[in-house]
Design a protein around this nucleic acid. Structure first.
Length: 271
DNA sequence: CCCGATTCCTGTAGGC
DNA sequence: TGCCTACAGGAATCGG
């Protein structure tokens, strides 16, 4: 499930293969994703050279002189670099055939992902415009998180998963950050002290940075641009570990449901 | 504005 | 073995 570390891992994997490459052909097999792939995508993109591969939140931005291709991996999407001519399989929805004889292929069984074309400033696109700060950027500082939590009654876990507060923190890393910070997921965001918010801020950055270093988390089928899985799953302390012993104190990890999402925590280490 | 519920989709796991 | 159901999840959107 691509959260920010998986998207960043993907970006790093595919960028060297796409940089300065011309798109010779575009194949759309299944346009019905989260939103339809634009019918005129091939016409817009064909012949364009990819100038840069950037990321904002969980969106990948392929820059060309005419516009940007925005790609979101949803929860089951992955992008891979393959040899042109590699047979397509089920759920292979989009290919960009490159001048160097390779192709960029989007696979997404659950089709929660998106592929959109954007002319003009991509950060002004309606889907990107009102996103919160990057968790690893300087704009996301303790003071920002403190202000964003004041007066809010929602559980802190749901608060840090809110894209307007900070982007890129999904279910896995929210649970893991709260474990490291020693904070129970159900506590009202606004009731946390400044000191605890500062701790949490540091833990969010620490967890995301470590996950990127490990190439992301592969639970089922995530692979980077090179087809390899990520290794952060080995370092998960609470996510998906209901009933298993806490790695710190041995107490059984608990699972609760918040906002239609599972959360896990250690009842001894987190308060 | 704030918050909770619903929605999209399909592979997988668990129950019988 | 096979059918059926529940569940997973990012994030927009709707309703209160």
């Amino acid at each position: 499930m691509p959260e920010l570390p998986e998207v960043e891992t993907t970006r790093r994997g595919i960028a060297p293969h796409l940089q300065d490459q011309r798109v010779d052909a575009v194949t759309v097999r299944q346009p019905r994703l989260r939103w339809p792939i634009p019918a005129d995508l091939a016409q817009r993109l064909k012949g364009q050279t990819i100038l840069a591969v950037k990321r904002r939140a969980k969106y990948l931005l392929l820059e060309t002189a005419k516009g940007h291709l925005l790609i979101h991996l949803g929860m089951s999407g992955s992008l891979r670099i393959l040899s042109a001519g590699t047979p397509a399989q089920k759920h292979d929805h989009l290919d960009l055939v490159l001048a160097n004889g390779r192709l960029l292929r989007l696979t997404d069984p659950r089709r929660f992902g998106a592929v959109l074309w954007c002319e003009g400033e991509p950060l002004a696109h309606e889907l990107l415009r009102s996103l919160g700060p990057e968790p690893l950027g300087s704009e996301f500082d303790p003071e920002h998180l403190y202000r964003a939590t004041r007066g809010r009654k929602i559980p802190i876990k749901q608060c840090i998963m809110d894209n307007k507060v900070v982007v890129g923190v999904g279910n896995i890393y929210a649970s893991e950050s709260l474990f490291l910070a020693g904070i129970r997921p159900g506590i009202a965001a606004g009731r946390l002290s400044r000191a605890r918010i500062e701790t949490l801020h540091g833990c969010i950055r620490q967890v995301l940075a470590a996950a990127i270093e490990q190439g992301g988390t592969t639970l089922r089928d995530f692979v980077g641009g090179d087809g390899k899985p990520g290794y952060f799953a080995q370092q998960l302390n609470v996510y998906g570990r209901e009933g298993e012993p806490c790695r710190v104190c041995g107490t059984a990890i608990r699972q609760i449901v918040q906002g239609q999402r599972s959360s896990w925590y250690c009842p001894h280490c987190q308060h």
